[in-house]
Design a protein around this nucleic acid. Sequence first.
RNA 1: UCCUCGAUAGCUCAAUUGGUAGAGCGCUCGGCUGUUAACCGAGUGGUUGCAGGUUCGAGUCCUGCUCGAGGAGCCA
Length: 431
Amino acid sequence: MKEWQRIAQLSHRTDGSATILGWVTHHRSSGRIQFVTIRDGTGEVQGVVRADEVSAETWETTRALSQEAAVKISGQVRADPRAPGGVELVVAGLELVGASADYPLTPKEHGTDFLMEHRHLWVRTPRQAAILRLRARIIHAIRGFLDDHGFVLADPPIITPAAAEGTTTLFGLDYFGEPAYLSQSGQLYMEALAMALGRVYSFGPTFRAEKSKTRRHLSEFWMVEPEMAFCDFEENLLWQEELVTYVVEEVLRHAPRELEILGRDQEPLRKVRPPFPRLSYDEALERLAEAGMPLTWGEDFGAAHETYLGGLYPAPVFIHRFPAAHKAFYMKPDPDRPEVVLAADLLAPEGYGEIVGGSQRIDDLDLLERRLFEHHLPADTYAWYLDLRRYGSVPHSGFGLGVERLVAWIGRLEHVRETIPFARTLTRVWP
RNA sequence: UCCUCGAUAGCUCAAUUGGUAGAGCGCUCGGCUGUUAACCGAGUGGUUGCAGGUUCGAGUCCUGCUCGAGGAGCCA
């Protein structure tokens, strides 16, 4: 049995003694009475210290407390309408566990660069802690959904010999004298694993050395990549909308406090229900033309186009069947229209852009070899991948979901760098 | 890689047509018997990103550079 309590539990013991361990967030003094606010990761509570109720030593120790000093305090838990949260601790004893001098972060405003430079301390603030709890809840929901639906967690390697798609920029490294790269997608490996386990998913970091500096980009981000054998394009979309819906429901059910701290309006989230609206690439072009943003068939969407399309509906929207020319080599052509592929992007509402990208994969060996040639990719690098089409090839599909973008959308955050404990961006690899 | 904007006290920011670099917060000391980012008084605080130029005089104008921001492209 523990000899101390966590702050979140204090409201259940509004009479009786308690001991808490935590860090000082605020300290106010008014002559003969001091107020010390303590944070312990589960919540905050105010300690009340009266000069005539504690020893001179405790009074002095309390008086000398500074921001983020670690303390152990004990006393009587009491309900009081004047206390933030309605419960306070009338302090009988206070011990300094760890002093804190010249804490850099003040209760006032700071700029982004300063906060990122002190990210190791910034995470202590209520807002940042709420975001990290939200992230944890979202990850828990994703894994729970997939685990409960027969998906086997099977993670691909992070150190890889070549680009998965041969396009985006990779972080290179020296692998015992051989060139190797940090994975920018585990998808090809997931296809192999799906042929072994049926339904699989990966959950891990992904690395992209793109020179992107926007609020939607990180150099290191986390991605979920489910892959399903015997799954066609339509079923793939169903899995995606079921998963996203479940995650949103779980957040609404289990993290309303976090959404409140973030000031996140819950109404748009309550409108996220399957089926999600779907627009074919061709239909999307029509919508864009009506909105004064005409594109000729075959052109890719720009950021403005994506934002517009994502904003058409309260729920995420699928854009599907893109022109094959600019898409990844492994995407299966639509049998009815070979000029488009059975791929879809899921665009989040409220301007958050693409959160999921998925497709049915080519299962025909000849076509896949032809596509590798057309994309100027070396066949020998993909020899093992081609084997998957040689030995019992089946229709299969999968998708990749960006965890940070999902967290940013659900929390309605300004920037993905706040959705991960220590963001790695184009200009920052520290702390 | 390109475009736009920016850099002044530990932090957030002011500084008029080029004319002695300030405020709030933080921190230190003092005051206050219920504070809520407490309040009141005093104190503390500067190579104005770097290098050069114009000028009697540059935080301010000019040139180059460095660093940062968010947007494009690219992407989750």
